[in-house]
Amino acid sequence: MSEIASLHERQPGRFVIGTRGSPLALAQAHEFAERLAGAHGWAKAELPLDIIRTTGDAIRDRPLSEAGGKGLFTKEIDQAQLLGRVDYAIHSAKDLPTTLPDGLVIAGYLPREDVRDALIARGAAGIADLRQGAIVGSASLRRQAILKRARPDLEIVLLRGNVGSRLEKVAAGTIDATLLALAGLKRLGLADKASGILAIEDCLPAVGQGAIAVVTRSEDPVATEALAPILCRETGIALAAERAFLGELDGSCRTPIAGHATVAGERFHLRGLLLAPDGSAAVEDSISGPVAEAAALGAELGRSLRRRAPAGIYS
């Protein structure tokens, strides 16, 4: 505790940001640093990055669901934060496990980017345009199941790696197509690489897609208070509903789950989808209500879908 306490005596504006080292993770960390520095009039040098390699970054040869799930992208950063090495941890919200380690909390989210998925393919603007038996690469069980549900003829193969390497696989003809989050492409200045943008109605996003989460220590009021000018209320409400929904299902990457919430004034709307891994069965529903009940109603929708899950979804 003495190490953490000493951090609370630091000069105002001096915070260390923990992040993964992928180009997208760095783009997100820089966006956070620029917003925070701009809000307080700090020099960007007062917000240095600590780049931390995670277990998830090292695994490229198998699905993360077989290696432990979402926490593989956060564990080492969590440890650094709990030891006082970093003050803020910046994560893609969809990579966060449903439960964080004791002592850490999601302090909030930056304004959300476009939540839709982008198709990367040669000569195809939509899933229906892909050739018969096309090879599509993806590491996401959600995307795999949605693709199989729409086009059982497609050959789905595992595709890991950063955004650039996935784009290269399509460009080289190793695979015919892949799906990527449009938010990530936009943050990397690569939105023009998308051959088509999939409608939310056809490809419901992952929980948290497009949102950047800011994690702090629960007992670090200095770091937490500094975030107030840059956090997005509407994104926080939407993510409260989505993460509560996910928490009632299976947030460990072993089950294909999609969920997306929107906020309009003091009301929210959440749509959720639970699929069999092979796309052969699915259950889908939505719920709406006051924003004050977003988490409670999100959890209610999750319990409802779990009760109605067709055989084969949970093995």
Rank of each mutant, 00 (worst) to 15 (best):
P221W: 12
L110S: 08
A89K: 06
R122V: 06
S140C: 06
H91T: 08
L179R: 01
T224C: 02
A206M: 02
I77S: 06
A107Q: 03
A37N: 01
R151V: 04
R149C: 01
D61Y: 02
V222G: 04
K44Q: 15
I200D: 08
L188A: 02
I313M: 01
V215L: 14
G251K: 10
A281S: 07
A211M: 11
F15M: 13
I17N: 01
A311W: 01
F15I: 14
P48C: 13
A145R: 00
I52E: 13
Q81I: 12
R217P: 11
G173K: 04
P221Y: 10
A25Y: 15
V115S: 12
V207E: 14
I106C: 10
R303A: 09
G173F: 10
F15A: 02
L270W: 03
R233A: 10
V215F: 13
A311L: 03
R122C: 06
S280G: 03
L227S: 09
S22P: 01
D278F: 02
R14S: 00
H30D: 03
K193I: 00
L130I: 09
I52S: 15
F73L: 14
T174D: 07
P205M: 14
S315D: 04
R143M: 05
L147F: 09
A125C: 07
R307W: 03
L231R: 01
A223H: 13
S165P: 00
A128M: 05
G251C: 10
P256D: 13
T255S: 01
E46L: 00
G210K: 09
E113A: 06
L130E: 08
L119E: 03
S2L: 14
E34N: 14
I135R: 15
G189V: 09
R35T: 01
T98M: 03
E9S: 11
P229R: 11
R10L: 13
E34S: 15
Y88W: 11
V170D: 04
K169M: 05
L47R: 04
R254W: 06
F73V: 15
A27Q: 10
S6H: 11
S252E: 10
E248A: 14
E34G: 14
F32R: 02
E201K: 13
L96C: 03
L270A: 12
A67C: 13
